[in-house]
Amino acid sequence: MSHSPDVSASRQHIRQHIRQVRRALTPHQQQSSAHEAAKRFLSWSPAASAQHIGLFLSVDGELDTRPLIERLWAMNRSVYLPVLHPFSTGGLIMVRYEPDTELVVNRLRIPEPRLDVRQILPLQHLDILVTPLVAFDSTGQRLGMGGGFYDRTLQNWREHGFIPVGYAHDCQHVEALPTERWDIPLPTIVTPSKLWAW
C-alpha cells in the first residue's frame, strides 16, 4: 500500500499527542466520562434493540468500556470482544464475553477471551460493533493505532449488517484528520458529552 510520508508522519504525530492527552485524564475524569458515555450509548436508538454487541476492553487511557459492558450484561444483552485471528493476519474474530470468561493477553498486550470456537459470533450476526480509536474528526474519520485490524473488520460493515460506532473521550476529537484511502469513516461516534452522527 503506497501512502504519503507526510500523511504518515502527521498521523503518527496526532496519535502520540492524543494518547498523551488521554493518559493525562485523572481517574475521576475517566470514571465520570465512562458512566456518561455508557448512558449516552444506551439512549442511542439502535442500542435499544441491539442484542449482540461487539465491544473492546480499554487500555492506554481509552474511554473505559467496563461500565457499559456491565450495564449490557445486566440488561441480558450478549457482549463480544475481538480476538486476534490465529491464522488470518490482521483479522479479528468476535468471541462471547461473559462475567466468568477467561481472558488472556494477546501479542499486542491487550486482554482478549481465550479462543473457544463455540463462542464465536460471525460478523453478520452482530448488531453493533463499538470500535476503539485514537482520534476522530468532524466528518467521522477515525484514526486507530495503525495496525489496520478495525479497518479490515469495518470494510464491509453494510453488507454484514452491523452498525459500527466509535467510543472515545471528547478530547480525542480533532478538526480534520489526514486520511489514507483504506480508512473507513464511522457513521456514529459516542463521547461522554455528545453523540456524533453522519
Rank of each mutant, 00 (worst) to 15 (best):
E70Y: 12
S32T: 05
T101Y: 11
V83R: 06
P122V: 14
L68E: 03
S32Y: 10
F41Y: 14
T131E: 06
P132R: 01
D127H: 09
L63C: 00
P111L: 07
R118Y: 07
T131G: 10
I93V: 04
G91L: 06
P113K: 11
L68W: 03
L123Y: 05
L84E: 01
A24G: 05
H52D: 08
H28C: 12
S45F: 03
D116H: 09
R66L: 15
S43C: 13
V117Y: 02
S49K: 13
S88F: 15
R142K: 04
K39P: 09
R71S: 08
D127L: 14
Y150R: 04
R109V: 08
N76E: 10
S43G: 13
L55R: 15
P86L: 02
W73T: 10
F41H: 07
G61N: 00
N106H: 00
G146W: 00
N106Q: 06
E70G: 12
S45C: 08
I120H: 06
T89R: 10
I53V: 14
N106K: 00
S45H: 13
L92R: 00
T131A: 11
R23S: 15
R71I: 14
V134A: 06
L108H: 01
G61K: 03
M145N: 04
V79I: 09
S138V: 15
H35T: 05
L63M: 00
V79C: 15
I110N: 02
Y150V: 08
V134Q: 12
I93T: 06
G148E: 03
R142I: 05
A47L: 01
Y150H: 10
I120F: 08
T139C: 10
P86N: 04
V130W: 11
L143Y: 01
V79T: 14
M145H: 03
E62H: 05
P82M: 07
V130N: 06
I69M: 03
R96A: 06
M145S: 05
L115M: 07
G146Q: 05
A48F: 05
M94H: 06
A38H: 00
P111H: 04
G90Y: 01
L63S: 01
L68K: 04
E70W: 14
Q31C: 11
L57V: 08
A34R: 00
R109M: 07
Q119G: 13
K39W: 14
T89E: 13
E36Q: 10
Q31A: 12
L108R: 09
T65Q: 04
Q30T: 09
P113L: 09
A50P: 01
S43K: 14
I53L: 11
R114P: 12
Q119D: 11
L63N: 03
L92A: 01
P82F: 03
P82W: 06
V104Y: 11
V117E: 13
L123I: 06
W44R: 02
R96Q: 14
G140A: 13
G54E: 08
A135M: 12
A48Q: 02
Q51G: 04
S45V: 11
L121F: 00
R77H: 08
L126W: 02
I128Q: 03
Q29Y: 05
